[in-house]
Design a protein around this nucleic acid. Structure first.
Length: 494
RNA sequence: GGUCUCGUGGCCGAGUGGCUAGGCAGUGGUCUGCAAAACCAUCUACAUCGGUUCGAAUCCGAUCGAGACCUCCA
């Protein structure tokens, strides 16, 4: 197994990756809250983690990839009041809350599938794990890290700190600063301290999504589901926990506290965070409306774009930047990526089609190819450096095109030829998850036949019956039956 | 206000104490009936000001600018 390094948000350092169980890797990624369509910014995170999972598998690890669906509506603000998002949407769309959750879960799956993302091995929903969440809350209460007020349960951050734990270790925050930076909001009267967060919230009569609990009817706190479900499916200590940068605080910080509070000293070994996708220099966000939906991208209907772009091009565009950096989205950047993507795929297809003949081998070029191919691994092992990997692939593109032009593929030898082919298909298809675009084949075929028929009509018009008959005969032998009629020619494909 | 990140050539976007990132666009060639593609060559860089160093775009400090988090969000 290669030496894989990744940036651990917990230590803020690049660390060598050592799974708890030698060959098995457990990964949990925070999934979407399904109250509206996923936008492109959401997709960036999931596409990156998809690439990461693909690479781990490519290296030979057995991966268990868990990504949740948040289908419990959480409150719209920190005041712990107001309508939850799913209920609100349900009211607006006049649907059951679970219809909303299902509708947007379906949408999410469709989009991820379009992006050629491999589905997670387990995709637990928060509403399906209420019992686990209640048990976890009970555990935390039993350990003395939570208190019950008016049917709600809150995590006691001060107690946690008193016991020597570091609330803020992940996000690098100081609790004193947190307090001073917190605005005074109404509705926090139940909490002992503004830093405390809800594990379980009491539901009032108007609340639709609620469950029985030892503390009365209510619903779980936002951070709880991930703690409960990750430990259920990956064990109380697992390898990698991922999510968007915006979840680092408070969500992931709270997750750590909950797990520790329930009795696990070190829930996660490596925390990984993908950075934001910006649009016009501003973060894409559902709540501000600064978004592009994947669908708008694929059909070109967004006002930010002059044309449609294919999912693979968008994926390629995302992979051309490093996951930890902010990526700004623009029409021009996408156009450039599209051209580059086509160039890459054309060269790759050229290589695949090459029939190999033995010939005099050229050591220089062979060494160069081997070195570039090795570099692909090296760069991916360096914190999943996909932009550098892509640079490597383009170096191979240049070599392929040169060999093709000089018709000298035989100079690289059978072994190197195969190695290059395997490296390229491995990284392009298996790791980056890119697919050549060959859509609308049926439509293209029809257009091609019509084009040929038009040429035949021209030949007939010029009384070049030799050519027109030749076209008809050859089409017939291909299974295309021509019918000349008064109003032109039609055809049937057998 | 607090915490943090970043500032690379026409655009996107890597990286690094001294050695070509890469893609797109531009320019000059090769090729070509024309075009496209491809190939060869080539031009634009490392926010500003100081400091450390034999040497810094890369380390340190200051300044200016941008963004993220601190409140639901991938």
């Amino acid at each position: 197994m290669n030496n894989l390094y990744l940036t651990n948000s917990l230590t803020r350092k690049k660390e060598i990756f050592k799974p708890i169980n030698k060959e098995n890797v457990g990964i949990y990624v925070c999934g979407p809250t399904v109250y509206s369509e996923v936008h492109l910014g959401n997709c960036r995170t999931f596409v990156f983690f998809d690439t990461m999972v693909r690479y781990l598998k490519f290296l030979g690890y057995k991966v268990r990839y868990v990504r949740n669906i948040t289908d419990v509506g959480h409150l719209e603000n920190d005041a712990d009041e107001g309508e939850d998002k799913i209920s609100k949407k349900a009211r607006l769309e006049q649907l059951e809350p679970m219809e909303i959750a299902q509708k947007y879960t379906n949408d999410f799956h469709k989009v991820m599938n379009t992006f050629n993302a491999i589905p997670p091995d387990i995709e637990p929903a928060a509403t399906g794990h209420i019992i686990e969440q209640i048990n976890m809350v009970q555990q935390i209460i039993n350990n003395g890290y939570a208190y019950v007020v008016n049917g709600s349960v809150y995590f006691d951050v001060s107690k946690y700190i008193d016991q020597g734990y570091d609330y803020g270790e992940l996000s690098g925050r100081q609790v004193d600063e947190l307090i001073s930076g917190t605005r005074n909001l109404d509705g926090q009267s139940d909490k002992k301290s503004p830093n405390d967060f809800a594990l379980w919230k009491k539901a009032d009569s108007s609340h639709i999504m609620k469950w029985d609990s030892p503390w009365g009817k209510g619903f779980p706190g936002w951070h709880l589901e991930c703690s409960a479900m990750s430990s259920k499916y990956l064990g109380s200590s697992f390898d990698i926990h991922g999510g968007g940068m915006d979840l680092k605080f408070p969500h992931h910080e709270c997750e750590i506290a909950q797990c520790v509070g329930s009795g696990c000293e070190k829930p996660v070994n490596y925390w990984m965070h993908g950075n934001m996708l910006t649009l016009n220099g501003k973060r894409m966000s559902k709540s501000t409306g600064n978004t592009i939906l994947p669908e708008e991208l694929f059909n070109g209907s967004s006002s930010f774009l002059e044309k449609a772009f294919s999912p693979s091009v968008v994926r390629f565009f995302m992979m051309q930047s490093h996951y930890r950096g902010v990526l700004d989205f623009s029409n021009d950047a996408l156009l450039a990526s599209e051209k580059g993507f086509k160039k890459l795929m054309e060269a790759f297809s050229k290589l695949k089609k090459t029939s190999f003949n033995q010939g005099k081998e050229d050591e220089n070029i062979i060494n160069k190819i081997n070195s570039i191919c090795t570099s692909c691994y090296k760069n991916m092992n360096d914190d999943f450096n996909t932009p550098k990997l892509i640079a490597n692939l383009f170096e191979l593109v240049a070599i392929i095109n040169t060999l093709d032009q000089k018709n000298s593929f035989n100079t690289i030898g059978a072994e190197t030829h195969l190695f290059m082919l395997k490296t390229m298909s491995g990284f392009i298809e298996d790791v980056l998850g890119l697919e050549a675009q060959n859509k609308n084949h049926a439509q293209l075929t029809e257009e091609l036949i019509n084009m040929i028929l038009n040429l035949r009509a021209e030949a007939k018009k010029n009384k070049d019956y030799l050519l027109s008959d030749k076209i008809r005969d050859q089409l017939t032998s291909l299974g295309v039956k021509i019918k000349d009629g008064k109003d032109g020619t039609t055809f049937v494909v057998n």
